[in-house]
């Protein structure tokens, strides 16, 4: 059995592997976690999640850009693929929240959405990814089915973002308590407010923080 200090070292190596976008090392370290009989949840929270949080800081600081983020998310998923089968039902239910994400109708640009998904997964969210070019009807139907805490809408084009108010209205009509957040290159706080969204994320890293803020406001209500 590895002792506590060694565990911490292992988790630090894991977070560093994510930050260094070392997919192979991430997978190896997670196998080591399982082989040593360690808690996979701790490996996620103290290793992978912290690694992705650091990736986010690098992105905000202009040290990492999309290519680096793509490889960091590969390292995250490589580790998660090893750890996930070892999570029990209790682990699975201890989620930060449940979120639906998707790129709105008419828009096929999903790179930001895919990276946002990685950020949410790393932060312990249950993510339902509807993909790209998602119709308003699909958003509403899936919201009805999944009953998420938050629905996150992404658009990269000034034209496609115009469908967002319709999607937001549809979700409001279903359940006014479900929060809707929006993001994407043409969006702004002002436009998000005009569209009736509860939250707005200017970039990938801000997405999780904004979702946490919305969850907190829901709790306070």
């Amino acid at each position: 059995m590895v002792d506590q200090k060694e565990n911490q070292t292992l988790y630090q190596q894991l977070s560093q592997a994510v930050l260094d976008y070392d997919e192979v090392l991430s997978e190896q370290l997670c196998k080591k976690v399982i082989d040593a009989g360690l808690d996979p949840v701790s490996a996620i929270k103290q290793g992978l999640t912290i690694g992705m949080a650091q990736v986010g800081e690098y992105y905000k600081a202009g040290r990492y850009f999309i290519p680096e983020l793509l490889l960091c998310s590969d390292a995250l998923y490589a580790g998660l693929d090893v750890l996930k089968p070892h999570l029990n039902a209790q682990n699975q239910s201890q989620r930060a929240g449940k979120i639906i994400i998707g790129v709105v109708e008419g828009d096929i640009h999903d790179i930001g959405k895919n990276l946002l998904k990685a950020m949410f997964i790393a932060s312990g969210w249950e993510v339902h990814d509807l993909g790209k070019d998602v119709s308003c009807q699909t958003f509403v139907e899936q919201t009805k089915k999944v009953r998420p805490d938050i629905v996150a809408l992404s658009a990269l084009m000034t034209t496609s973002m115009m469908v967002m108010p319709t999607v937001i209205d549809g979700i409001r009509g279903l359940d006014p308590d479900i929060k809707v957040m929006v993001g994407g290159a043409p969006m702004s706080q002002d436009v998000a407010r005009k569209f009736g969204a509860d939250g707005y994320a200017p970039d990938i890293v801000a997405g999780v923080n904004e979702a946490e803020r919305l969850m907190s406001s829901t709790t306070q209500e």
């Binding site: 008419g106 096929i108 469908v163």
Partner: peptide
């Protein structure tokens, strides 16, 4: 080809 005003550009499937 774009099929609705939401598209505005060619779509790479």
């Amino acid at each position: 080809l774009p099929s609705s005003p939401l598209d505005q550009a060619m779509k790479v499937v």
